[in-house]
Every structure is written in C-alpha cells, then in structure tokens.
C-alpha cells in the first residue's frame, strides 16, 4: 500500500507543478536535495537514538524493565481475559508492553510477535483473531512510550525554547487514546456475545 501512496505522491507533484506553475525548476531541486535532507535528518536523530539506546540498555540489564513487567501483570490480567494463571502469553505481553513504555522499539516488536504466537497456541482461534490478539495489537498501535525521544530531538534541532514541555501532553493523550481503543475492544466483544 505504501508503495502505491509514494508513487502517487511523486506523480501528483509533477502533474500539479506543470498545471499550476508551468515551470519545473523547484521540483528538480526537491529531487536532488531529498537524499541530503534525509541524511541530515538521520544525523539529527542519530545522537539521541544512541543516547537513549544506551540508557535503556542499562535499564534492561539491571532488571528494571522485568520488574516493571511484573508490576504490570495484575493490571494486564484484567484487560487480557481468560488466560491461565501461569500463561506464557501473558508474560510475553507484559514484557512487550513494558518495552513499549520505555520506548525500546527493537525489543518490543519481537516480544509482541512472540506474544501473538503464544496467544495463538493457547487460544487456538483458527483463522479469526481472538479478543486477546486484538487487544494486544491495539496496545501496540497506541503509542504508550513515556518519552518521545525522536520528537524531542527534532524540537531541539529546530531551536525550541522548551523541547520537553510536550511530555505531559503526550502522556495524557497516549493514555486516553489507548483507553478508547481498549474500551472499543470490550464493547465489540460484548456486542458479539
């Protein structure tokens, strides 16, 4: 799908430019500078990504993330219903959610995929997604990251006077939007029964 969108954007640009401006100079400049701008964007982010990767690796190695996962498990058990007491799926879910909270993107995805597979084993939903699978996917489509590091890094690069002032807003908005998604899963599930 993304492939079609990107192709459409490129074609639309050229067509729109010819129709409205009858000159193509600016487009050619955009084409030639795209790579450069992408490289400088990555360099902007490289430093902050390295820093947080390092800090969060310390959190992981010290067992802090495991500890948070344990603390979250009772809460998650209320949301992911019908799983066994020592469900391996729930353990993977707790790890996945914790990794997301800390913004450990690389670690979160494999854990999430493992949780999906375990849910499939434990619930045998066949070719239809189970309620818990849908619940896990909305936990991952909502951004529950505590510190939006890339956004803050970009704000710093563009000279913001207070780069981290958005954090409280981000946390509030993230939590409410997650709650809306979770509530809708509960609602759809009741409607089905």
């Amino acid at each position: 799908m993304l492939s079609i969108i990107v192709a459409f954007m490129v074609i639309l640009s050229v067509v729109y430019n010819i129709i409205t401006k009858c000159e193509i100079f600016e487009i050619s400049q955009a084409v030639m500078s795209a790579g450069n701008e992408a490289v400088s964007l990555v360099i902007t982010l490289l430093g902050v990504m390295a820093t947080w990767g390092g800090i969060l690796q310390i959190a992981k190695d010290s067992g802090l993330t495991d500890k948070l996962a344990k603390l979250l498990t009772p809460l998650l058990r209320k949301v992911f219903t019908g799983l066994d007491k020592d469900s391996k799926a729930l353990k993977a879910i707790a790890m996945n959610v914790t990794a997301n909270i800390f913004g450990l993107g690389n670690a979160a995805t494999p854990l999430g995929i493992e949780a999906m597979k375990r849910l499939e084993e434990e619930e045998c939903p066949g070719n239809k997604a189970s309620r818990n699978m849908i619940m896990l996917s909305v936990f991952n489509t909502s951004s529950i990251e505590l510190i939006p590091t890339t956004v803050i890094a970009l704000r710093i690069a563009h000279g913001s006077a207070s780069p981290s002032e958005i954090i409280p807003c981000v946390i509030v908005v993230s939590i409410i939007s997650l709650l809306v998604s979770v509530a809708s899963v509960f609602a759809f599930d009741i409607k089905k029964k």
Partner: peptide, 29 residues
C-alpha cells in the same frame, strides 16, 4: 545499547530518503 540504536538509525535512512523525495516533491510543487 547505543551501538544497536545507531544501526537502527542507519537502517532507517533508505526509507527516509524515499519519503523525503515524495514529500519534498509534493511540497515543492
């Protein structure tokens, strides 16, 4: 951890170049 994320940032680059191309063109036009 820093090493791992530096790799992630570089892996991001090819996609970012493409999106920068598409969005840059859309903006310039």
């Amino acid at each position: 951890g820093a090493k791992e994320n530096i790799k992630v940032a570089f892996d991001l680059l090819p996609t970012l170049v493409l999106l920068m191309l598409a969005i840059g063109m859309l903006k310039a036009s």
